[in-house]
Write a protein that binds this DNA or RNA. Structure first.
Length: 115
DNA sequence: GGATTGACAGGGA
DNA sequence: GTCCCTGCCAATC
């Protein structure tokens, strides 16, 4: 019952699972995902995992920066792809940023299975 | 072995 | 509200 896995394939899997746990129309930050994956403070690791992912069914576009900003440089390919997908899901993307879900208390709790 | 980089986060100006 | 710098961790050169 150790605690956090020491950054291995299991960690990557956990991160992927956390990303897949994000419901459609909702978004989360890298640090948030990492935390839910059992890797507090490993936001960068989450980013790295997503950069190496190739799963098209993985909602990576729902993962944003802590500020709600898209991690890619504006005008970049990934930027456009992500913004496009988010809009397709009903997420308001404006000027390279996304309106972070301010209040989704019950929903959020349900999603992460924790109040 | 060390040094550099990176889809980050947080605090300060 | 935006822009800049520092810190943390892991992988890569």
């Amino acid at each position: 019952m150790k605690d956090v896995p020491a950054a291995g394939p299991a960690a990557a899997d956990a991160i992927l699972a956390a990303v897949r746990a994000i419901p459609r129309g909702q978004v989360a930050g890298y640090g948030e995902v990492a935390r839910r994956a059992g890797l507090p403070g490993r936001a960068r690791l989450a980013a790295r995992v997503l950069s190496g992912n190739t799963d098209a069914s993985l909602p990576w576009h729902r993962v944003l920066r802590s500020d709600g900003r898209i991690a890619f440089p504006e005008g970049s390919r990934g930027f456009r792809e992500q913004a496009r997908r988010l809009r397709a899901e009903g997420v308001a993307v404006a000027n390279g940023r996304v309106r972070m879900a301010r209040v989704v208390p019950d929903l959020d709790a349900e999603v992460w299975g924790m109040p």
